[in-house]
């Protein structure tokens, strides 16, 4: 059994990203994915973003990733 660590983001060739220790998804669109973390929000922007796997502790995101930002507080977008 893989042991997940808290708040680890792994980026592969700006095409694939895995987030370990997430707490759910705040918003999800082709251009922006907001992932709730233990101490804030992880905001991923890019093109053709797609969550391909969702495990209790890990989230896998595919697409062209332009930017990753951490926000302490993020309003939930309903777009």
């Amino acid at each position: 059994m893989k042991e997940f660590r808290q708040g680890i983001v792994t980026l592969g060739a700006f095409e694939k990203m895995s987030v370990e220790g997430h707490r759910g998804i705040l918003s999800y669109s082709e251009n922006e994915v907001a992932v709730r973390m233990a101490h804030g929000t992880l905001l991923v922007t890019g093109d053709n973003l797609e969550i391909t796997e969702l495990n209790p502790d890990e989230l896998v995101l595919h697409g062209r990733i332009d930017a990753i930002a951490r926000e302490k507080c993020k309003k939930i977008s309903t777009k």
Partner: peptide
Amino acid sequence: EFTLNALWRTGVCVSRI
């Protein structure tokens, strides 16, 4: 988002989304 969070809360592995 609501659906994905509901799935996440079940604690199952969701693939090929």
